[in-house]
Design a protein around this nucleic acid. Structure first.
Length: 218
DNA sequence: ACCCAGGGTCATA
DNA sequence: TATGACCATGGG
């Protein structure tokens, strides 16, 4: 997978879908809360949950942490997995408050910050990288199932590549540019909503010209 | 009715 | 290390 190939994908996605303006959140803490809530969950459901958190006065670190976990779970109910996510949100918020909030963390180097995020219960690789890129504005490329699927469609074998290997590939081939990584991941998610979903669907797909499955699958 | 969504943890082999 | 079970709502 070469740098020009990754550029070509990005250029076509941007031309087709336009800038996505991620991450949709009011402030860093809300962004991080959203990252946990959106785990394996449609964003529309996350939006409802965030509105309910705001209505309940729980969309700030101290209130969220101090609330009974049952009350927090009820507030985020529309996001699904609400019992699991309520615990994860409090685990994360405890870590966040203990660290002194955003400003002290913003001074930690990216590698250390990533390790510290991954040590928090409920924060895995993708959620950690979402937070690093979209809240702390570090040049970390977020990998998800869509990334594998789309890169696979263009004819590159990334089936066996582990998360870290695929992330290393993107970060090696592309310049360490926060704005680029921000837009690229957002475009991949945006693209997946309307393309490359079932199997074929390549009719009218902006990647059609460079999609190897265009002839065989549809 | 079935499938999937802007994943991660935990138990098991 | 590599699977499988589990978590749960809402839209197509």
């Amino acid at each position: 997978m070469s740098a020009p190939a990754l550029r070509a994908i990005f250029d076509r996605l941007l031309a087709a879908h336009g800038p996505q303006g991620w991450w949709p959140a009011d402030g860093h803490f809300e962004m991080m809360v959203g990252a946990v809530l959106t785990q394996n969950t449609a964003w529309t459901n996350v939006e409802r949950a965030i509105l309910r958190l705001a209505d309940a006065g729980l969309l700030e670190p101290r209130p969220l942490l101090d609330a009974p976990v049952e009350r927090l779970a009820e507030a985020i109910r529309p996001a699904g997995y609400f019992n699991v996510k309520a615990r994860r949100l409090q685990a994360f918020t405890r870590w966040y408050i203990d660290a002194g909030g955003f400003e002290p963390l913003a001074r930690v180097d990216t590698g250390t910050l990533r390790s510290r995020l991954l040590a928090v219960h409920g924060i895995g690789p993708e959620t950690a990288d979402d937070i690093l890129l979209y809240a702390f504005e570090r040049p970390v490329f977020v990998i998800d199932a869509y990334t594998r699927r789309i890169i696979g469609r263009v004819g590159h074998d990334v089936e066996g590549l582990a998360y870290e290997a695929l992330r290393a590939l993107f970060e090696r081939e592309l310049p360490a540019d926060v704005a680029l990584f921000n837009e690229y991941h957002a475009l991949i998610v945006r693209h997946a909503k309307t393309h490359c979903r079932k199997r074929p669907v390549c009719a009218g797909c902006p990647l059609e010209a460079i999609c190897e499955s265009a002839g065989t699958l549809g």
